[in-house]
């Protein structure tokens, strides 16, 4: 992967690499991608991709309210901690800078 590809990838991942990181991370990633190349040796024709460990299907959740408002133990949570974790909270809104 060349530097340009690396930077495009970084911007997709919302990471901004410093010069040193471009070299260090770039080298490690290149090494891994070389290693991954080995996979092309294998004939994978006719194999379905495994996307889930076990292909169990049809798990649906009934459309009923279930959060701490009705004290359902399955989804109990502490709202105060959620607000405390907020970096900047005003009137129960999370505040972030505006795009000017």
């Amino acid at each position: 992967m060349n530097k340009e590809e690396l930077l495009t990838t970084a911007s997709l991942a919302l990471l901004e690499l410093e010069e040193g990181e471009v070299d260090r991370l770039g080298e490690e990633i290149a090494r891994m991608l070389d290693y991954f190349e080995m996979m092309t040796k294998l004939d994978v024709d006719g194999l379905e991709p495994t996307t889930h460990a076990f292909q169990k299907t049809n798990r649906l959740r009934a459309d009923v309210l279930n959060n701490n408002n009705n004290n359902n133990i399955n989804n109990a949570f502490n709202r105060n901690l959620i607000m405390e974790n907020g970096n900047d909270v005003e009137d129960d809104f999370f505040v972030i800078p505006n795009v000017l």
Partner: peptide, 25 residues
């Protein structure tokens, strides 16, 4: 970064999808 790259369009079949097939094997 590595994970973002292997999912990018144009590379996904070569890496991610192939890996999932190898998983099946």
């Amino acid at each position: 970064l590595l994970g973002t790259f292997v999912l990018r369009s144009g590379f996904q079949d070569q890496y991610y999808v192939r890996a999932q097939k190898i998983r099946t094997l």
